[in-house]
Design a protein around this nucleic acid. Structure first.
Lengths: 346, 346
DNA sequence: TTGTACGCGTTATCAT
DNA sequence: ATGATAACGCGTACAA
């Protein structure tokens, strides 16, 4: 007995056809007689035949692997992206390989080139912020590797892009703050060079402008998307006089840092200061108070990206390329505390 | 010009030797003349030759992929494990593929078998709790796939295992609580069937026994290693009369849940109740107060596991198989509040 | 120590 | 619609 060792030759012989015909069945060729196809499929089932992926990879010059390329500071985002891709390739012969890169390394492009040459991936999904690198996109084309970028704005044509509406979502979130009565709102923005940082800042300013509000430049502080930078930014903002009554942080991890800064100053959240984050990763619901935040639909986006790569248009639905980030209201927002100066004017 | 398309034949021709000799260089055979080897290596560099991994995989019946198999409820642990494996295979031709499984599915074993048959992984790293499944280990042997388990006890021989000393580490952690004056200590243990849950509970009981302390069974509550279960367990423990003055939670995520439960009851941490977690994942330092916890050295363990698989004994050092979990003291532990009943007796 | 001939399992070319 | 034959690039008996 040969456990799952049947080859294409065995199938061809048993079905009384040539290898090539069996190959056509494997590759879903249309140039084949339906009866022949049915017969071969029966034989394949009987023999428990599994096409050898290594042999196919050699012949096709392309492996059955989807790569996730990232240089993302947020752990949960990376994991959610993996989750989405895995959903897309479940029950297919594809597997997921993960590949972190160093955005700032001068060898980054060469590293990825070598990686692509060696593993010959079927396709690659780029996470922010590395998704903004056009050289990488060119490299993929040149290496004959499919790719899709995930980002907060359309950086590429729809076949190579899934994007979210960060700007509008932040507009809504900050609008929520304003509707609660806040007017002195601080911003912890993401690092320079991140498109998402720019988009979210734009949404923030849009909301302020729409309400006729202005804030001093000193109420905008830049972070790195990491917890520690949120802590530092929070300290800067909270020692500002007059103190902001609310702070929008461009991601949850930094928002958690702002929360720490508030706690360390003896400030209550949300009574003394309201906080809104972005991502709705695991940490958002697990800190106290539960964080009001914007949910970035990473999982769905990653799933869509992978489906675009493996060409499963049916499952990809209407080939959606834009996704909606939505405000999740939890416990970290309340109306601003009464302002002595303001009470008098009322 | 042929961009990186040199084959083993090109190298052989240019070096004036046969394919086989070049192959020996690639595979580090010792049966080769040093001069010949040097000459061939020069030619390989000149031609920018890269062995084709797909062809090697076909011939060797084994791909250059290390798999991470997990059914782990903790996101940060999974990511840290990936990090460790990636460190080990950096600058090699190996890549990392991730594969979540459903421990409870009746098809789990067949799924993995199909996965292994298809991708022909070089090796597999098992994370807890799936690492405890002996059928999986047998499957690997049968499929000619290397494997190493990561766990909280030696479940296999050293060649297939990297383990941590959870029991001792928890013994130390709970001892820290006792040294602070706590005697009524609650436990949120992990799910039944998890070896780590049993090890950590044993350490907990060891510490109590060593101090001559006993607690009612009702102060031990089982969780799922998820945040929500920690919340529920925390509620149960904190409504217990008399209330425990400290709670050891078998992982950080559940500890965060306990913290929520305390907050919701208006209890202060650590003034009213002390909390210790386990893992030292990202969340531990990011919640308030910063969580005193036991650091589980996932990254190092995963790196060691991967090194064992790719057989880099030199880098694996002395083939370490046991790792030390250590107590990280932060802000969630303080002496217990004064107990009225106790004050009288003093 | 090195080389020859063949196998690994599939796809591509170009017929018919 | 189907088939014979040659790639794809490398590893391994076995011989020399």
């Amino acid at each position: 007995m040969r456990t799952s060792k049947a080859t294409i030759n065995d199938v061809a012989r048993a079905a009384g056809v040539s290898k090539k015909t069996v190959s056509r069945v494997i590759n879903r060729s249309t140039l084949i007689n339906p009866d022949t196809r049915a017969r071969i499929e029966t034989v394949m089932a009987e023999l428990d035949y599994q096409p050898n992926l290594q042999a196919r990879a050699l012949a096709l010059r392309r492996n059955f692997l989807i790569g996730l390329l990232h240089d993302n500071p947020n752990a949960q985002t990376v994991l959610n992206a993996q989750h989405g891709i895995l959903e897309a390739i479940r029950d297919t012969e594809f597997a997921l390989v993960v590949r972190p890169v160093d955005r700032r390394s001068p060898h980054m492009l060469d590293d990825v080139r070598l990686f692509l040459e060696q593993q010959r991936l079927y396709g690659l999904v780029f996470l922010p912020p590395i998704c903004e690198n056009d050289d990488l996109a060119r490299l993929c084309v040149q290496q004959n590797c499919h790719y899709v970028r995930m980002g907060s704005a359309m950086l590429d044509d729809p076949a190579h892009m899934v994007a979210s509406n960060d700007r509008e979502a932040v507009f809504e979130a900050v609008g929520h703050l304003i509707a609660q009565g806040h007017s002195r709102i601080g911003l912890v923005r993401g690092p320079a060079g991140f498109r998402s940082a720019a988009e979210r800042e734009a949404g923030f300013l849009d909301a302020l402008g729409r309400a006729g509000l202005t804030i001093p430049k000193s109420l905008i502080v830049e972070g790195t998307y990491r917890f520690e930078s949120g802590l530092v930014a929070g300290e800067r903002l909270l020692e500002h006089a007059p103190r902001p009554t609310a702070i929008f942080s461009s991601n949850d991890e930094m928002a958690a840092g702002v929360l720490h800064a508030a706690r360390q100053r003896g400030l209550r959240v949300p009574e003394d200061v309201s906080i809104i984050g972005f991502d709705d990763g695991a940490i958002a619901a697990h800190i106290w108070p539960p964080l009001t935040t914007v949910r970035w639909p990473v999982v769905s986006m990653a799933r869509a990206a992978a489906l675009k790569i493996i060409g499963d248009d049916a499952a990809a639905g209407t080939e959606t390329s834009t996704f909606t980030s939505t405000l999740i209201k939890r416990g970290s927002v309340a109306p601003p505390p009464l302002d002595p100066a303001r009470i008098r004017t009322l």
